[in-house]
Design a binder for these strands. Structure first.
Lengths: 228, 228
DNA sequence: TGCCACATGTGAGCGATGCATACATAGCGG
DNA sequence: CCGCTATGTATGCATCGCTCACATGTGGCA
């Protein structure tokens, strides 16, 4: 096993980018076997390195998950920063949609971000900072809506809370259905009540968001003109 | 260690109600150290029995968690069944509140019920049945509201989806804040964005629920008369 | 009352895991 | 060419989930 040649099989003694590989493989493993069954040794095996190599990049199993969550917050913040603020109501709507869409397309990371696997954020500065960034963007969009009068002139923090709860809830149910939908036939999905409830939401998420938003905007009739 | 006498220390050779003890101890352990760190051996140690004794009551670690979730669905269904259906709108409101309150007072079970720890319900008949029972009650309450005209005359399933999403989201954020609030001083809590967003919701959950519900009921002005 | 089947708890043990420690190797700047 | 540092290796320990064979109460039935 002489690994002194660099180009033979793509990896020499040094893996190349073990950190990135671990993050990706980790995501795939969680998707297929859940957070519980995740093992650093298995990840190392799959990457073709020794069982303890991952500890050069992550202090612990927990730290690896935290890094994944951090990545998630950064991606979510970026997607929320991408919406234009020209029309405050449209921005509000786009923000909510991009949140739900991110959750739907990155269910594993989303669960790490908002679930209870990483119980305590303290001690993970990068994670905390990334999460704050998301919240700041939401707050900014809502503030613009309040300033323009498009959103109800209520307390900003309370508005943030209700909006987050609404979007977070829809995202959660959307994820649930997706997760099981890929693994099982539809008949089996309908055996799980939360998923049945979600079916309606997932099939027309924009419509559902619109309906719930009507209670939050100053002129609900304007919503009809947004996104069909 | 002669355990032939029954009344000496409360446990003889047979524990008494090991199953119940395990369920309770398990809940406490998850609350303090999360689902990840949970160990059947530790639970057995704490109950004063041999490391393999728990396997007489639960097929696996997973089965223990599923049993806990089942208990949760049964309790939640009971609390939702306790609300009167006389006034459909009031029933709708009470149902939502009792859902959020259950989540807030039993965060561990709630997470097991709706999180991704128990990935697949199939194979857990009791769990599936209990979950269905909850959904059936929600559906019933909404149907009454539709029949009376108090809720918007929309598709029942879609209504279930949006309501569930709304309530589920608020419950989730309420839990998050609570969980960390007990463990850390308030200044630290505010370091975690989702929790900050939640503060507004938690401080006046009924008001927040009311506001979001306005988009779902036929005559929003009637809501003002419900619960102060 | 006496006895036996069965539910419940015990004990040893296997393979795997997280993680700490000490060591080896590769690549890069001086 | 030397040596420093980042990265991966080797070894080892305590613990865990789970299996299997065995021990011990308990309640039902004659």
């Amino acid at each position: 096993m002489n690994a002194s040649q660099h180009g033979d099989d793509g990896r020499s003694y040094h893996h190349g980018d073990l950190r990135k590989t671990l993050l990706e493989t980790c995501c795939a493993h969680i998707a297929s076997q859940g957070t519980e069954g995740l093992s650093l040794r298995a990840l190392a095996r799959e990457a073709g390195v020794s069982p303890t190599a991952p500890y050069r990049h992550f202090d612990s199993r927990h730290a690896l998950l935290a890094a994944l969550a951090t990545e998630g917050f950064e991606e979510l913040a970026a997607s929320m920063r991408a919406v234009a603020l020209d029309d405050p109501l449209q921005a509000f709507f786009d923000c909510a949609l991009s949140y739900i869409r991110y959750a739907a397309s990155h269910p594993v990371k989303y669960h790490l971000m908002f679930g209870d696997v990483i119980g305590d954020f303290s001690g993970h500065e990068e994670l905390t900072a990334a999460a704050w960034d998301c919240y700041a963007r939401l707050e900014q969009v809502l503030q613009v809506g309040l300033d323009s009068g498009d959103l109800r002139p209520d307390n900003l923090e309370e508005l943030c809370g209700t909006v987050w709860a609404l979007v977070h809830g829809m995202a959660g149910l959307t994820i649930s259905a997706q997760a099981k939908a890929t693994a099982k036939p539809i008949e089996d999905i309908m055996q799980v009540p939360p998923l049945r409830a979600q079916q309606a939401v997932a099939s027309a998420p924009e419509g559902a968001v619109l309906r719930l938003m009507e209670g939050l905007v100053a002129d609900p009739s304007r919503l009809k003109g947004i996104r069909q």
